[in-house]
């Protein structure tokens, strides 16, 4: 549990810096190519749709995706301070800001599908905190893999065309993250022609 770590004060300071940096990146427009980067702070608002199409099924599928993304965000927030500044920390901070953008995008999609995103939880279970850099990268890669697997499972079930395309764009981003996390672990970064 991220919020349960013992060195709360120093970690809070570090995490605050990471989140602030991620927020700055988002505000600077570095978070995405859609030109409509949203943030998780929009949770609870109704989305505006350009069409009348809604889909309760899409809302259900996307809500679960949002929870996965929020857990991954929490993991990045907890893990970035554990990574060396001369190794993967700068990249992980960028990926954190991108994961935050994913949560905002999903909240928007939930709204477009006629739903309302639940507020984020106070904490998310990410298992045992890693004790070294290799474990940290492996944890982040495992969470990215969970997201990828979930997106590949739901993408043919999504009824709204815009949601399918947007989820494809999020999936592709997560696929980049896991490839670069593998690179950071000296593993083959793109081991297959078909991401699974």
């Amino acid at each position: 549990m991220v919020s349960g770590q013992g060195d709360g004060r120093s970690r809070r300071g570090l995490l605050g810096g990471v989140v602030a940096a991620a927020g700055t990146a988002l505000l600077a427009g570095c978070g995405g190519s859609s030109g409509s980067a949203r943030t998780d702070s929009t949770a609870g608002r109704e989305g505006t749709s350009g069409t009348d199409a809604t889909s309760p099924r899409d809302v259900e599928l996307l809500a679960a995706a949002l929870e996965l993304e929020r857990r991954t965000v929490n993991a990045y927030v907890a893990c970035v301070p554990l990574l060396s500044k001369t190794y993967a920390a700068p990249a992980a901070a960028v990926w954190l800001s991108e994961e935050l953008t994913h949560t905002g995008e999903l909240i928007g999609l939930i709204g477009q599908a006629g739903g309302k995103a639940q507020p984020r939880a106070n904490s998310y279970e990410i298992g045992s905190m890693p004790s070294n850099q290799a474990q940290t990268l492996a944890l982040l890669a495992s969470l990215e893999q969970l997201q990828i697997s979930y997106y590949l499972k739901i993408i043919p079930q999504l009824q709204l065309a815009a949601a399918r395309a947007a989820v494809g764009a999020i999936l592709a981003s997560d696929a980049q993250h896991i490839a670069l996390l593998r690179l950071g672990q000296d593993q083959p970064p793109v081991p297959s022609a078909f991401v699974t």
């Binding site: 990926w95 991108e98 953008t101 995008e105 981003s173 993250h177």
Partner: peptide, 10 residues
Amino acid sequence: LAAAAPSALV
């Protein structure tokens, strides 16, 4: 590494 994936929505 940080510059290799600059977009959140690919």
